[in-house]
């Protein structure tokens, strides 16, 4: 059975319906990306999956004993709470120091265990959050705008790493992102959300769907192609390509959708 299944789920905040009639499932080993403009209910969608919001109607079912590794969009730390990276990794279940060390190495931030969480840079913080999520041995990894605060090459590398993790661990990955071009190329399936599921399918299919274009314009399709092309190459060249691609994005897009996409990227 699927790891998580949403059947005809609607969620309301007060009188506002945030999600309506959403059907969704994710299976073991899949990478699924949810894209959508601001206020399209992406975060609510993730919160429904972890059980933080109760749907007004419909049903959310999770596989028995499902382990979720959740990487939140941000984690505001109160300055009065002292906590080292090592201690943070042991929440809520205590892990052995060696396990913490290897998780940090896997997230490409070794040797941070003794540092205060509040002293980390934005990129380091995201990777520590990823390390913590990995320590749960998740069946499903949830990433909510996980590359906020990373620059373009940094986030491209981050997503490539997510792909590698799926290969090694076989866990499913569900991510929410504004960075359409980078994210979509790594996905098996893309869901375009705008209060409801506008369209879904393989990245190429979604990128050319009229519903998607109505939301994001046509500019990103070219970027997608560029990034696809990048994929055939050696990883050492990733930086240059990511850079090219960022420029391509600007060149391709006609002004209005580009502004919207950039707005969304914030």
């Amino acid at each position: 059975m699927s790891l998580v299944q949403l059947e005809d789920v609607s969620v309301a905040h007060g009188r506002n319906t945030v999600l309506s009639h959403v059907n969704f499932r994710i299976d073991r080993g899949e990478i699924v990306t949810v894209v959508g403009p601001n206020g399209s209910g992406k975060s609510t969608f993730l919160r429904a999956i972890i059980g933080a919001v109760r749907p007004a109607r419909g049903r959310v079912s999770r596989a028995k004993g499902l382990r979720i590794g959740y990487v939140p969009q941000k984690l505001p730390l109160d300055p009065t709470l002292p906590i080292t990276v090592g201690r943070f990794l042991s929440l809520p279940t205590r892990v052995a120091p060696e396990a913490a060390k290897s998780a940090l190495a896997e997230a490409e931030v070794p040797d941070l265990a003794g540092r205060q969480m509040s002293d980390l840079s934005g990129g380091q913080f995201q990777r520590v959050l990823l390390a913590r999520a990995l320590l749960a041995q998740p069946d499903l990894l949830l990433l909510d705008e996980a590359t906020q605060g990373l620059d373009q090459p940094g986030s491209a590398r981050f997503y490539r790493q997510i792909e590698a993790l799926r290969q090694e661990r076989g866990c499913a990955v569900l991510m929410v992102s504004h960075e359409l071009h980078v994210v979509m190329s790594a996905s098996d399936r893309v869901i375009c959300l705008n209060g409801h599921v506008c369209c879904e399918g393989q990245p190429e299919h979604v990128a050319s769907a009229p519903e998607y274009r109505a939301l994001f314009g046509t500019g990103t399709q070219g970027a997608l192609a560029l990034y696809r092309h990048d994929h055939d190459h050696d990883h050492d060249h990733a930086h240059d390509h990511a850079h090219d691609h960022a420029q391509g994005h600007h060149d391709h897009a006609d002004p209005a959708p580009a502004a919207q996409a950039q707005e969304a990227a914030r």
Partner: peptide
Amino acid sequence: TATLGEDLAYSC
């Protein structure tokens, strides 16, 4: 865990 983040807690 709940003090660090409510959604983080839910996910656990």
